[in-house]
Nucleic acid binder design. Structure first.
Lengths: 199, 199
DNA sequence: TGTATTTCTTATCTTAAGATAACGTTTTCT
DNA sequence: AGAAAACGTTATCTTAAGATAAGAAATACA
């Protein structure tokens, strides 16, 4: 990973949430950690407290839950230039109930919880970081809202069609059995829906 | 409604999100609007932009979506001492896709979007309000996260049992056919689940 | 109080989803 | 290149959910 390019990219994708002047940016940069995950490596595992808030510079990750019988259930995906964390665990400081795993070799820029608290508390960045945190949380709140609305107002088939229409990377880059869980159904069921739609 | 008591109650329930000194509180109070809704009145209707963030001092509300065929689908409930808004619409300044309706005579303390922006921009309250907004959004993000996890990892029956165990007011105070939608199923289906569980 | 409305359950029928297994294909790994 | 693992589809069987209608019980209301 090239930290210089990664930082530049990060700064650009932070724009909607926080715009830093040079001074602030320099300070913000001192809190960054650059981490690479090999395919199948974990960013977080259930039972552990998630200590980092991440930005995906390159690659993709899968969020999943482990059922009692050992099967895993995919909850979400994130791709390059998106943020990533086991939010609830990160925010509440409690053990995560999910795993986040790299689906390909992935480059991350991380901010630790401790760093975040320091920035929130510091004179120079505090106000801006509160706003950053607010805008990020609001952004994801809206995404989650859409997701819940889809679950209560649409059938699995309708949800799949919406996903098709959305043109998101998910369909192109994710195995179908992961997408199935994401839609709240089994892989077999998704395969049947696909067949039905073809007609 | 007694605005004095309502303000006192609001301040108490804001504690986890924002603690104001007397000065700040006095200023914050100048932005409050006190509104009462009669049973079945709407706080927001689909198609309109939600201009207020509310606190329920007394009463309860139901969030619902209107399907194409005119049936309504309940998405959520909020009770006294909880916050309430059509968040996505409020945050993104776009028309709401849902309705929020009073289920009984309800007392609200509202902050308009404009007031919120003024407070966020003001010297005295800005920093604190950013934090307030962040903590509120994070709080609801966690709730939504749980809800989505339930949809992808649990069966309707399991979701109902969890709701039973949670001891939330929903079961005691809401008609069953509203709860059914909330769980992502039809009222008939919930009735069958209840019967099954009784055995 | 009496009527209307809402709410919940039950029954029937239809449709779809879950569980499981088998099979061919593709991908991964060494 | 060859073996192993992962992936997607299909078939069968079972179970549960949706749609619809009817009726009883509870509630609202005028």
């Amino acid at each position: 990973m090239d930290p210089l390019k990664a930082k530049y990219n990060y700064r650009e994708h932070l724009q909607p949430f926080a715009v830093f002047n040079e001074d602030e940016w320099a300070l913000f940069c001192t809190y960054m950690e650059f981490v690479s995950l090999k395919k199948k490596e974990y960013f977080i595992e259930a039972g552990k407290v998630c200590n980092h808030f991440g930005f995906i510079n390159k690659g993709s990750v899968r969020y999943f839950h482990m059922a009692n019988d050992g099967t895993d259930i995919t909850g979400y995906f994130s791709f390059e230039n998106e943020f990533m964390s086991s939010y609830k665990s990160f925010v509440k400081r409690e053990p995560a109930n999910n795993y986040i795993q790299a689906l390909e070799d992935t480059e991350l820029i991380l901010i630790s919880y401790k760093s975040m608290q320091e920035m929130l508390a510091c004179e120079k960045l505090g106000h801006k970081m509160e706003r950053f945190g607010r805008l990020i949380a609001e952004y994801y709140l809206c995404c989650y809202d859409d997701r819940i609305t889809a679950f209560i107002t649409q059938s699995p088939e309708e949800r799949y069609i919406k996903l098709l229409e959305s043109g998101r990377d998910i369909l192109r880059r994710m195995p179908q059995h992961y997408i199935a869980n994401f839609l709240g159904i089994t892989p077999v069921s998704l395969s049947r829906i696909r067949r039905r739609i073809l007609v």
